[in-house]
Simulated scan of single mutants.
Amino acid sequence: MTDTLPTFEQRARGALMGAYIGDALALGPHWYYDLDALRHDYGNWITDYTDPRPDRYHGGMKAGQSSQAGVILDLLTDSLVTQNGYQEDDFCRRLDQDLFSQLDGTPMNGPGGYTSQSIRETWRLRVHEHHPWGQVSGLADTTEAAERIPALAIRYARQPDQLARLVSANTALTQHDTTVMAMTVAYACVLGSLVRGESLDTQTSDRLMAMVREGTLPFHSVTGHGEQVPPAGPEASRRAGQFPSPDALLTASCIVRAAQDPDIRIEPAWKASLVYGMPCAVYHQFPAAYYLAGRFQGDFESAVLHAVNGGGQNMARAMLTGALCGAIGGIQAIPDRFLQGLEHVDQRLAWAEQLAQQAV
């Protein structure tokens, strides 16, 4: 880590590259729920990119390559840069031409070696049943959409109202469960605040809730400031938001407070996966990512390696954690070996710089 505060551009580059690196680090040891088997196959501590075993998820791929989540992040990032902003039609066209054309509806197929439940369902409705975009989302409760929104969080970090609106719309392309959408938008708001240069601390949620009360973020505020009771009369409902509860915004600071409390310890930190849950659902993944980022802050290597070594859905955990810690510490907090070993690193660094330049 460095004592010099990172610039906006450095935070933007760190956030995007952190997401890509977290994804690629977990490519080999992805989805080991038997931790003894994970240690047997990859040793006591994974420290770098690894080849997937041929008989497991992503078999045949090589260390440093990206899963399908990284591929989709590529499509959205390239679209944002090329269009100088989010154009849903352009992104959907890329999904149709560059991804869906390579899928067959089965899990062990397609770019990245595995296709998620969420993308398979969208592919089925879009390709087999010929539904238009806007009518092809499913009920998967995973972080599938959240794994691509770091690009949006960077591009619209300085426009939090636009960020929330566009992340909600982008999520709705493939997932329509409102709890999933609320938690995904909340994660994007937290990440966007870090890219802007705000801290990940016990006040993060308060700052975001202030935006809710101002009408900037689309969440419903149940109370007034702090623990004050809500006002009587029509004012009480005037600020009702798209999402009925602000709890998704409150989660980050609650977990950061626990991560920084000396009386609450998860040792070693990779066991956050056991505390918050190893499966794929959003209510397991986001809390673990907030915990690791809150505990390690700009110590990118420690946070991401603990995310990977926790097993289960470690790819999403590492991707989400990597984006948060990359934003906190900036690109300079990411070890060179993680950049040098990542496929397409030069292109992705260039995209990150362009996103930062276009963010106004």
Rank of each mutant, 00 (worst) to 15 (best):
T4I: 15
N170Q: 14
M315P: 07
P287L: 03
Q354D: 07
G329Y: 07
L152S: 03
A26C: 11
C325R: 12
P29H: 06
D206H: 10
D346M: 03
Y156S: 03
P160Q: 03
H30Y: 13
P231T: 08
L152K: 03
H344A: 14
P111L: 12
I46Y: 11
A26K: 07
E214V: 07
W133F: 00
Q162V: 02
E198R: 10
D263Q: 15
Q358A: 11
S116G: 14
H130S: 14
L125V: 09
D201P: 11
Y187R: 07
Q135D: 09
Y42S: 10
A272V: 14
L16T: 09
M211Q: 13
S199Q: 13
G85W: 01
Q358R: 05
R56A: 08
R39W: 08
S66E: 13
R148C: 00
R165F: 10
I149M: 15
L250I: 04
R39M: 05
L173R: 06
R196L: 01
R13W: 02
P160E: 06
R295F: 07
A289D: 00
L194T: 00
Q297Y: 09
T202W: 13
C280W: 01
Y187E: 08
Y86K: 08
A352K: 01
R56L: 10
G112R: 07
T106R: 15
R94F: 03
G277P: 02
T7H: 03
F8D: 10
A248G: 05
H225R: 13
W123G: 11
C254G: 13
M17I: 09
R265T: 13
L292K: 08
S168T: 08
R94Q: 09
L217Y: 02
R207E: 05
I119N: 05
D104T: 10
A153H: 06
F91H: 03
G59I: 10
D263G: 15
R239H: 14
Y49G: 00
L173P: 00
D23G: 03
A188F: 01
D23L: 11
C325W: 12
D98N: 14
I331M: 11
P244Y: 12
S237I: 14
T171H: 10
P268Q: 10
A359S: 13
M278R: 11
F100I: 03
S273G: 12
V304Q: 08
P132G: 05
A248R: 04
A240T: 13
R257F: 12
D98R: 12
M209L: 15
I334Y: 02
G192A: 08
Q297V: 09
A164H: 04
H131F: 02
L76S: 06
M108I: 13
R317L: 09
F338K: 06
C189F: 02
Q228F: 09
D247K: 04
P218T: 07
G329P: 09
L38T: 04
W133V: 06
M278L: 11
S205D: 05
Q332S: 15
R120K: 14
Q358K: 04
W270A: 12
A318W: 06
